[in-house]
Design a protein around this nucleic acid. Sequence first.
DNA 1: CACCGATGTGGGAGCGCTCCCACCGCGGCA
DNA 2: TGCCGCGGTGGGAGCGCTCCCACATCGGTG
Lengths: 345, 345
Amino acid sequence: MAIARHRAGRERRPTLEQVAERAGVGRGTVSRVINGSPRVSDRTRVAVEAAIADLGYVPHRAARALAGNRADAVALVVPEPETRLFAEPYFASIIRGVSTELAEADIQLLLTLSSTATERERFAQYAAGNRVDGVLLVSVHGEDPLPELLAENGIPAVMNGRRSADESFPHVDGDNVGGARAAVRHLLERGAAAVATITGSRDMYAAQCRLDGYYAELAASGVDEDEGLVAHGDFSEEGGYRAMYELLGRRPGLDAVFCASDLTAAGARRALREAGRSVPGDVALVGFDDSAIARHMDPPLTSVRQPTEEMGRAMTRALLAEIAGEPAAAPGLILPTELVRRASS
Amino acid sequence: MAIARHRAGRERRPTLEQVAERAGVGRGTVSRVINGSPRVSDRTRVAVEAAIADLGYVPHRAARALAGNRADAVALVVPEPETRLFAEPYFASIIRGVSTELAEADIQLLLTLSSTATERERFAQYAAGNRVDGVLLVSVHGEDPLPELLAENGIPAVMNGRRSADESFPHVDGDNVGGARAAVRHLLERGAAAVATITGSRDMYAAQCRLDGYYAELAASGVDEDEGLVAHGDFSEEGGYRAMYELLGRRPGLDAVFCASDLTAAGARRALREAGRSVPGDVALVGFDDSAIARHMDPPLTSVRQPTEEMGRAMTRALLAEIAGEPAAAPGLILPTELVRRASS
DNA sequence: CACCGATGTGGGAGCGCTCCCACCGCGGCA
DNA sequence: TGCCGCGGTGGGAGCGCTCCCACATCGGTG
């Protein structure tokens, strides 16, 4: 029901009008100075700036938004079931990237957790209700109606990641294929004879890419594929644990495993320990995401890091461009990943 | 420089006026219905609600804010150097609590990362510029000028944690003393003969509380204090590592350690492993915060969990009450903590 | 010397709401 | 019957901006 009462004792802030009076100019001129219009003489600009400083004037956001038919704010939408995302450095640094980029443009960041599909539809409504200029989407699943809802309503939006190879929605993603290739190449270079992999959820495109990268690197290195070395996980620790046992049962001689996520690697590591295999002595292990777990595993886990902060910045820049009506250069942007070597391989 | 151009193709949303016309009433009446005023007859209310539904009307936030002299938004301020906070489930679930509570009140959440002290002052300016109705503060350090700046400007604010025992600023905190006591009691009950502790940064009040709890529980259990069993860390892994070696040097016979944070415990665990001590066989280990690391340590770490989601909700409720001008019931609120038992003890 | 465009500038007209005052109609009371 | 009070209602006035049109002013041009 929103906020009911006015606060007492909060002094009234100076208005444009007062600045204008003080500077001895008209309202329009002050507005021009504030918005960096070139159509103001230097002398006038200096005088206005002085008045602004004197009065400690700060533009009133709501008034600006109302008059200018914009919000000067963008929303970052996070699926509620995945607030675990917050627990990832991945996400933290995306936010940092978004935040710095927005600060430069003097645009506010609204954080929205949406749980149900209905709530996401409601959000599209709200977004349309002139509350935000654009939307940043994180962790979008295949069935999520939000991207299309936003598109229908003509609300600029950019998502993190892709839902398929030919994603038409504007997006910024890390190079999953390249990261997986680097990981596998690293294992091969270390002399691994049988490199296995534990995949992520099969219905997620990122998991598919990481598997593709695995195959691609093997092919490039002239190593024959062996389906017995591929086990399916679901990005979870438990999935990694089960898949590792599966692999050990099928190919006891394997000496390296590329896991589709750090959590998966943690599960695999547990299974390996139970099975009496040492890491990296018997089996070398590489994960993906470079999350907090990776650094704190025993031994610390080699992992693929995505340029997350830069991804946040890139998403934001793309969104601001879209909002400004600039024609999109490309539907999406793929940023390079990096292998972080630690003791597990 | 804010957003320059208008978007094309975005259909114009219906206004209050149009709803009024459709329902055959005046603007004021529709406004009353929207704001839940009791001074509307049932028949009129029904008619207006029907018109709202027909038109898919959504109030225009900026217009509301401007006319009503409020923002319907609160800011959550996170010190930039501590975006590592994001990587904590602690923080993630505070956000979840804040977010759900705000959603119920239909108030927006603004996320602000502020790095430097100057930037924090600038933020106080902005906050005063009618951008937000209130502010939530996380991870406030002793020298931070922001709380006082906000207070001077009469901006409602609530912080998470305390800077000292007699914190006068409105706050919500977890029961650090109680949590530490529970941890130590647990270790004693398991039969530990010599319970050591590794503290957090000495200049942080939370660290002091956890140490106080350690002493308090020992006293309550009739165990004599032994300064040799207390080593100082700084909440970091490296600090825990060093402190653990210090302890092992001084009291080789210790068989339990209460660590002021999970990260500290991870460092201690590494030192113990190097020293050939098993966990929990030789030494039982307990951490604090119940972070992601705790679950993924080997063995999984017993840790003290704070009711973080509830803390987020409580902070928000307190803030909304303050904004509404309700007299604060108490300067602060302390919520109980809980010991999560795992294999490390 | 009249005319013109390029610069600057002032200020009216809104943006979509909330607030509040005026007003209407009705029942109860003297 | 006349008057008061009150639940309900309409709509004017503004919130602080941006947009844009109108109006200087000034140096070239023909």
